[in-house]
Amino acid sequence: MTNLSDIKIVIVDDEPSIVTMLQMVLRREGFHQLYTASTCAEALELGARIFPDIVLLDIMLPDGSGLDICSKLREYGNPHILFLTAKASDLDVLRGFAMGGDDYITKPFNPLEVAARIQARIRRLEQESPSASPVKRPDPVLYRFGHFTVNEAEGELIVEGQPVPCPAQVFQLLLHFCKFPGIVFSKAQLYDKVWGINGQGDDSTVMVHIRRIRERIEVDPGNPKLLVTVRGLGYKLVKESQER
């Protein structure tokens, strides 16, 4: 079980009221290694010095954009990066994920939701961590759907016989669909099952991750045939040609 007091969190925001609010709530939730930065330069200096586990990253900073330093922060221990921003358009969300963000919350926000998302991420990492003393390597669990295969044990997506890079959260969402082919899941259900957050989350987060899956597995992502939208209900992975 992860000790929350060991998790290093960097809050990068130039609004003191937001920083203070997040510090207060996160400390109350059990996080004590909290670091703050108000500029891109300070954030990079902190990242290089402490190798954070979580970065709460504002996009609009006095000396630049959080988007521009996201990939650089990745070099310091590959932290989970959650954007906090007033920029809420679909294009802004897409750009945030394209630049390497793992999650996206728009201002104004409830700080308890930020804490919940961090805790959900920690639980997910605990579930993904291998046993400290494995006795036997499990047989690979493969999900085959036409031209693509998902190897659960290896955390690998194979398309047309070639491995395709797949960010962790995108892979987890795809894996969930593979485990339940033909089942329709609403955005709220996906947020609950994959992100580990009860209730309705940010619709854009799910939509962006669906799009990223389609870009990898669909012949024509703009006209999906595998991961399809069921209007008014949600999404499902068609089960035709599925093997196990």
Rank of each mutant, 00 (worst) to 15 (best):
S204K: 15
Q169Y: 02
L67W: 03
G232T: 02
A98N: 15
D58C: 04
G101K: 03
V194R: 07
P62W: 00
D90W: 08
E75R: 07
G96K: 08
P111C: 07
K187E: 10
E218Y: 00
M24C: 11
F145W: 02
P224R: 10
M60I: 06
L226G: 04
R74G: 13
I122Y: 00
G96D: 14
F31W: 08
L173M: 12
I9M: 03
L94V: 12
P62C: 07
R137Q: 14
P62N: 01
P108I: 06
L26V: 06
D6L: 08
P181Y: 03
G96W: 00
P79G: 11
K107A: 09
F177E: 00
G66A: 05
R137H: 13
S133W: 06
I210S: 09
F83W: 00
R28C: 07
L142T: 02
I183F: 01
R49V: 11
K187V: 04
D103Y: 02
L233K: 15
D92E: 13
G100T: 11
V55R: 11
P167V: 02
D139L: 15
K225N: 14
Q23T: 07
R211K: 12
A115R: 03
N110T: 06
A153T: 11
C166P: 04
I183T: 11
F83Q: 03
C40Q: 11
Q189D: 13
T36V: 13
T106M: 03
R121E: 04
L237H: 14
V150H: 00
V164N: 03
V10G: 06
L82E: 04
L226T: 11
